[in-house]
Computed example of a mutant assay.
Amino acid sequence: MSTISKSAFWLGLRDGAPFVLVVGPFALLFGVVAADAGLNALEATAVSLAVIAGAAQFTAIGLLADHAPTFVALASALAVNLRMAMYSASLTPHLGAAPLWQRALAAYLTVDQSYALAMSTYPKHPDWETPQKMGYFLGTVTAICPFWYLLTIVGALVGNQIPPEFALDFALPITFLAMVAPMLKTRAHLAAALVAITLSLVLTWMPYNLGLMVAAIAGMMAGARVEMMTGGAK
Rank of each mutant, 00 (worst) to 15 (best):
A98P: 09
A75C: 10
L91N: 03
Y115H: 05
T92R: 14
A75F: 11
T92Q: 15
K124H: 02
Y87P: 03
M119Q: 05
K124Y: 01
H125Q: 09
A79I: 15
L82A: 14
W101I: 11
P126I: 07
A107V: 15
P126K: 05
A97H: 12
S120G: 08
P99L: 13
R83D: 03
Y87T: 10
L117S: 01
A97L: 13
Y115N: 07
A97C: 10
T92I: 08
A73D: 11
A75E: 07
A75I: 15
Q113K: 04
G96A: 07
A89G: 12
S120Y: 00
T92E: 15
A104E: 05
S120N: 05
H94R: 07
W101C: 04
A98D: 13
A97K: 14
K124V: 04
Q102A: 13
A77E: 07
R103H: 05
L95F: 14
G96T: 10
Y108N: 11
Y87V: 02
H94G: 07
T92N: 14
P99F: 11
S120W: 06
P126L: 08
Q113C: 01
S76D: 03
Y108M: 04
R83V: 08
L100C: 05
D112T: 03
P123T: 02
A107C: 13
N81R: 03
Y122K: 04
S76V: 03
L78N: 00
L109V: 10
V111A: 14
Y87Q: 00
A116W: 07
P93E: 00
V80A: 06
L117M: 05
P126V: 09
D112W: 06
P123R: 05
S90H: 09
P99I: 13
Y122S: 04
L78W: 01
P123E: 03
A107W: 03
A106K: 13
L109N: 13
L78M: 15
M84D: 02
R83M: 01
L82C: 10
S88Q: 10
L78Y: 06
A79T: 14
V111M: 00
G96H: 06
L100G: 10
P126H: 00
P99Q: 12
R83F: 02
A73R: 09
Y87M: 06
L78G: 12
M119K: 02
M119H: 07
A89R: 15
L105C: 11
A106I: 08
A98H: 11
A85V: 14
A116V: 06
A89Q: 14
N81D: 12
L109T: 09
A77V: 11
V111D: 01
L109F: 06
T110K: 08
A106S: 14
H94N: 01
S88G: 15
H125R: 11
A107D: 04
A106Y: 00
L105K: 03
Y122L: 04
L91W: 01
L74K: 07
K124I: 02
A85Y: 10
